[in-house]
Amino acid sequence: MASVLDALWEDRDVRFDITAQQMKTRPGEVLIDCLDSIEDTKGNNGDRGRLLVTNLRIIWHSLALPRVNLCEFGCMVKCISKLRGQTEALYILTKSNNTRFEFIFTNVVPGSPRLFTSVIAVHRAYETSKMYRDLKLRAALIQNKQLRLLPREQVYDKINGVWNLSSDQGNLGTFFITNVRIVWHANMNESFNVSIPYLQIWSIRIRDSKFGLALVIESSRQSGGYVLGFKIDPVDKLQDALKEINSLHKVYSANPIFGVDYEMEERPQPLEELTVEQPPDDVEIEPDEQTDAFTVSVPAGHPYQQDREPVFSEELGLAIEKLKDGFTLNGLWEVMG
């Protein structure tokens, strides 16, 4: 039985120029945020691109060219924001296979803090959820004789009287089988324990040992390549445990739980929805006591008004429509002015 880690590279490597297939999310990977107008300032200065934030990695890709830069959360050493000229930029220092890379991402459209809040917050959630993904020895796993459950973790079986065969005499302890890992701890010393996520299990089988048949778990090379033996009596119980672990491992492999739970707050609306047509300035003309501005402004032929006969205006020297009683030319100029 090979671990899902065989195919899982998304949070372990820094890769460049990946294919469109490699950009797709894998089972258990969730897209958390998508940021447009982001520039890879150090690697592709002046080239506008898009930054994708998932629970395992961040991906930057150019919008104009098929180049893709990729940076995984598991490789991040430092993630800070700095002022670059008049614009704040996100500096990310990574280390992969003993090689260091520095990335500088700049928001081409300033004013949005999501470039920093999304990446830094998700990276923090990744760092604080390593128990889902990493093999741990002598960790704080047990409290009041019970397993300290992780969010979304469920215990499917608890087996008492399990011997850890790491020493010549063995240590008697308790076995927990959950939906994300296997945990064993010594009954006499709860701090003597091991947590093995399904993500780090390379193989699990029943083998013969000097103590008789034992459940042997081999961890991945990334987790140290440990070979851990556990003796469970009787043999029927041992076989049932193997069958249950294999079943849960298969379910986990189909839809892994990586433990990085982060939900974005209400996302800003698109610019098109935030942009509204600005209405013209409202100008209110206050007529004097003898002038009705609405009556004056109604054009000839309007259904609210009948045409009036033309008369000659000596003041203007041309023919105009006869004014209503009580209106003067001076009064009209004052209103229209």
Rank of each mutant, 00 (worst) to 15 (best):
W60E: 02
L56K: 01
Y91N: 08
G28N: 00
Y198I: 00
N44R: 12
V227N: 09
V162T: 09
N179E: 03
I182E: 02
L274A: 13
F192D: 14
E39R: 06
P310I: 01
E315D: 11
E190S: 14
N45F: 14
G331L: 03
Q239R: 14
M131V: 15
L52T: 02
V180Q: 06
T117G: 03
L332K: 01
A139L: 08
L149Y: 06
N164S: 14
R12G: 00
K158W: 00
K24A: 09
K322H: 07
R124D: 10
E273H: 12
V109D: 11
T87A: 11
I204V: 14
V296T: 06
E39S: 07
T128E: 14
G49K: 02
G173L: 07
I217Q: 05
L115E: 04
I320K: 04
L228V: 03
N44S: 12
L172R: 09
V109Q: 11
G161R: 08
F175Q: 09
K95D: 07
N144C: 08
N107A: 13
T25P: 00
L35D: 06
R124S: 12
I232V: 05
Y262L: 07
K78M: 03
S209K: 06
V4L: 10
R100Q: 11
Q269I: 10
N69K: 06
G331A: 11
L199K: 05
S167C: 05
E266D: 15
K210M: 11
R152C: 03
V335G: 02
K78L: 05
